[in-house]
Simulated assay, not measured.
Amino acid sequence: MRRFLLFGVAMLCGGFAAFWLLTQPSPLPPSVVAGLSGDATRGEAVFHAAGCASCHMAPAAEGEAKLVLAGGQRFASPFGTFIAPNISPDPTHGIGGWSLEEFANAVMAGVSPEGAHYFPAFPYAAYGKAEPQDIADLKAFMDGLPPSASPSQPHEVPFPFNIRRSLGGWKMLFGTGDWVVTGDLTEAETRGRYLAEALGHCGECHTPRNALGGLDRSRWLAGAPNPDGRGRTPNITPAALNWSEADIVAYLTSGFTPEYDSVGGHMAHVVDNFARLPEADRQAVAAYLKRVPPVP
């Protein structure tokens, strides 16, 4: 019995050690951003394409107030309620004291400056496909935004989902850096893929998830229940979205559908962001959507 107990303890310790090793946060190699210098003008386009203000502006902010990234918006999900943090350049309550390397680790790898995992409500699985130069440009733009002294609020995530160390396992399962749509893409389709799969993180809302919250890449952009349990995000694969490329461009510019209905919900923020990009980018997204495999 004593040997059996010792063996059990050894197995338990070994299992815990393996879990601790496999789930440790993995920051980016310093070489990823070494020598990069950000350009705020280019970073403004990255900011809008990535939808940063849509989640991190204060609740009900309008106009120029959307650029004050004070956080506070609440996002309900089956795993708890996530509250967007302050990511303004305030050095105390925001991210004003972060280096480019720390910023890139957060955005692209989901690792905090303290070396902890971020929850994947922050779409770093998509942003991880971004070009490091775009991330440097994004930081340069965000550094010039108005600071806010509003403290970030803690997420309301119950046990066991609040065990951040377990997110290392989630990243191994679902944090793939592979593109979903592959093949011989045109230049426009390739640009559209970058905007939709990386910066725009369209799959985060439009793709169904499994029980662990991972995206079902076999049903890419096929629609999904809204995380808060109210309503559904539509299928935007060619099986359901029969708009022409011109229709898609017009929608991303004006918010009006071909049937003269108007955009609503969180998609209104997406349209507002994409309307600020060059028309060539909206055309690229439209071309990409036509290459997405149709899913009934």
Rank of each mutant, 00 (worst) to 15 (best):
E156G: 03
A106G: 05
A104S: 01
G71F: 02
L138S: 10
A125M: 15
V181Q: 00
W179G: 00
A121C: 07
H117S: 09
G51Q: 11
P85D: 08
G175N: 10
V9F: 15
P238S: 01
L215I: 09
A70G: 01
F174S: 09
R232A: 15
G63H: 09
R42D: 00
P147L: 06
Q24T: 14
G203P: 05
C13Y: 07
P147N: 04
W179Q: 00
T182K: 15
S262C: 06
Y124R: 09
M1G: 14
P160G: 11
G71R: 06
A61L: 01
I95V: 15
R217Y: 14
Q133G: 09
S148I: 08
G35F: 11
A275G: 12
S77R: 09
L5D: 04
R164D: 13
F79P: 02
S166I: 13
K139M: 15
L28P: 05
G177Q: 12
E101L: 15
P160A: 13
A50P: 00
A18D: 03
H48N: 10
P293R: 13
W220I: 03
Q283E: 15
A70W: 07
G63V: 12
A286T: 05
G97A: 11
R193S: 07
H266R: 14
A188W: 02
N235A: 10
A287D: 03
N86E: 14
G115F: 01
G43M: 03
S37V: 15
D184R: 12
M57G: 01
F256V: 11
I95R: 12
P89G: 05
